[in-house]
Design a protein around this nucleic acid. Structure first.
Lengths: 405, 405
DNA sequence: TTGAAAGCGCTACCAG
DNA sequence: CTGGTAGCGCTTTCAA
């Protein structure tokens, strides 16, 4: 199966015939022979950590290496070393600007660290997410970063807002959330177990925006940001609000909704009307359509718990013949790139998505090892840390200063 | 370094102490012992291709495997098999909706094929792209998909349109393109060599929208789409056009520009004014600002060679006090998700990005092996194929039907 | 500082 | 159909 043929230049080629395909590549062996040193020395010169190779030998090896076009086989390195040079990134939906910005940050940081990222898409399903994390184990990644879990599976999504009044729908949302609670809890427990095992095996994990799991988490200040937004909007003169939000099983939605309500209360304003819907652009649009269809009364502003929804709201408003910003103000959360592309530009709460990605990787890598051979207790001592990610309100034309009549 | 300890359940744990970190994982060895069969049999039962394991044995092995929580070490598998289970995806900028949609498609298809994708970001630099492809080799991916190369490096980007008249700038753009041509050519040649070597080694490659390289390519019908767009727009009553385009070294821009001009000619209309600028949102905005600043005369419509630029144009128009669609129509190309979020919704040429990603992976995987051991000539016979990707004009409110005065 | 050789976890050959 | 075993390409001890 393996035939080693030598040509006059001393270059050795390994031709591995496999399934009828001929692979062909330069190995460390070839480099060593070409450089006239041993296998071990070549290894040390090229990828060794404790560098104890004489300068001239090292040079000859490096020389031979790139004369031959040698690239270390990372898989082999990984098996030999017991740890790979990859990090795994799990996102709900790479086609969502929120996640693609995070992915950009993670990838950038990984590249800087000499790591390469493997990406998987959980499609907003905790079940799939769990499955992915399991499959990922096989790659023995140095770290796994999960962005955007804790999204209710499709089945448990709240009933469309169209079918009921705001108040009734909110109740329905809670009900459907508890209906699937036990399934969700199972998945959640399994994910925790999986991640814990992975961590035990030396892996690092960082979660983005899921402060309810016992792992290092980058916690976006959803509550504080929404609260501040409410306060700032009140300062602009707004008095009557509605919130387009998703099922409470989506922590992000839940926290932002509560934070916003808290800010309103703090400003001495009445509680907002609730517009329960999906956590998507379509959800936002539908919420707006329904709202206008049944009459929005004296409502002045709709806060959607994320920008994608807010953009949906703007679209829905327009389809209903209303001009966002003028007839009804709109605000979102996340400050995705598109926030400045819509018109009027969208007021939002800026989350440093790109930076968040960078820091997620950094935090994971910086995590203390699970335990050293000598000190098994240390792991328990330094528990999962929470990295707070501050956010910032960005006022834009979608919420113009309001002159009260 | 390796100590094997056996506990009463028969489970064996390998504790590998490395750099002071203790890894810990279940190997095939453990599974084999737990199931009471040989190593080889366990391997066959779990991941073998030619399945010749007695049913009861197979069952016992599977059983043991998930009792122990065994996951094959993919790196080890890859070294042993000589081929990995990953595909590499190189995109210019994952935070750009064009690429993130493609990435979603590739990832989806990869998951379906049981492959996992490693992603790298070339940051729109051919140099970086080359570097990445080189680094990727180490992972021995089954296939590499490159989306969006042939983007001029920052240094050779055309001069800002603001500094000159449209005509003069166009000349400048060509000039700067040729100025950096030799550097570009070097990089290009190196990339081709690298990819060819990779292919020789059994790898598959698919390129998206770079029909000038000798590899399987998914060729978006840029020329035809732009031509059809021009024709349709003419049908709507438009007569005087401008094109916001980028440096001609960016093939995509070049082809779309020429296709559009051809369509105009075909419709018996005068050639478009040229607005050379950057291939980005900022570029589009700047082009619009400059255009309005020096007076757009009787211009009726601006075609930007991609949606991101078109959205920039709309923003620039608004900043100049013009209403896109009413005062000046705007059209783009790509039909990214955001095209329907802006207002008025953007007329564009739909490129099936998600599907494109799926097909890119499929095409790469379907590629004939470079050559079999017996038939070295076959590779030359079945050269690189070009997979045409049809596009479709989508008319939206940013280009309302025009009544001529 | 170097070379020999024993691993890493797994696959695939060869006898039986 | 099964077990033994020689690889895969690399790292890292261990003596020299």
């Amino acid at each position: 199966m393996v035939l080693v043929e030598r040509d006059d230049t001393g270059v050795t080629l390994h031709d591995v015939t496999l399934h009828g395909i001929t692979l062909h590549s330069v190995t460390l062996h070839d480099v060593a022979r070409e450089a006239g040193v041993s296998y071990a020395t070549a290894s040390r010169a090229l990828n060794g950590s404790d560098r104890t190779v004489r300068a001239d030998n090292a040079a000859r090896v490096r020389d031979a290496a790139d004369r031959l076009g040698y690239t270390p086989d990372l898989s082999a390195q990984a098996t030999a070393r017991g740890s790979s040079s990859t990090v795994a990134l799990v996102v709900s939906d790479i086609d969502d600007p929120y996640f693609s910005s995070i992915a950009a940050g993670v990838t950038e940081a990984a590249t800087d660290a000499g790591l390469i990222v493997t990406m998987a898409i959980a499609d907003r399903s905790p079940g799939l997410e769990l499955q992915i994390v399991r499959a990922l184990r096989g790659h023995r990644p140095r770290a796994v970063i999960i962005a955007g879990s804790r999204i209710a599976p499709a089945a448990s999504t709240s009933a469309p807002a169209s079918s009921a009044s705001a108040a009734a729908s909110a109740a329905a949302a809670s009900a459907s959330a508890s209906a699937s609670a036990s399934d969700d809890d199972d998945t959640r427990a399994a994910l925790i177990a999986e991640l814990a095992a992975y961590q035990q095996a030396g892996g690092r994990v960082a979660l983005i925006s899921q402060d309810d799991l016992p792992f290092t988490t980058l916690a976006i200040d959803n509550t504080g940001g929404a609260r501040q937004l409410a306060l700032d909007l009140a300062g602009l003169g707004y008095r009557r609000f509605a919130i387009a939000h998703a099922d409470d099983s989506i922590r992000t939605s839940h926290d932002r909704r509560l934070g916003f309500a808290a800010g309103l209360a703090e400003a001495g304003l009445p509680p907002p009307a609730l517009l329960p819907t999906d956590f998507t652009r379509a959800g936002g649009r539908q919420a707006a359509l329904d709202l206008i269809a049944r009459g929005h009364g004296d409502l002045e502003l709709v806060f959607a718990v994320n920008d994608v929804m807010a953009i949906g709201v703007m679209t829905g408003l327009r389809e209903s013949g209303l001009l966002p910003g003028r007839d009804l103000a709109v605000a979102g959360f996340d400050d995705i790139n598109a926030a400045v592309d819509v018109s009027p530009a969208l007021t939002s709460v800026r989350v440093p998505l790109h930076e968040l990605g960078r820091r997620a990787l950094a935090s994971a890598l910086a995590e203390p090892p699970p335990h050293t051979t000598t000190d098994r207790a240390s792991a328990a001592v330094s528990g999962p840390m929470s990295v707070p990610i501050p956010v910032e309100v960005i006022l834009r034309p979608s919420t113009p200063t309001r002159r009260h009549p």
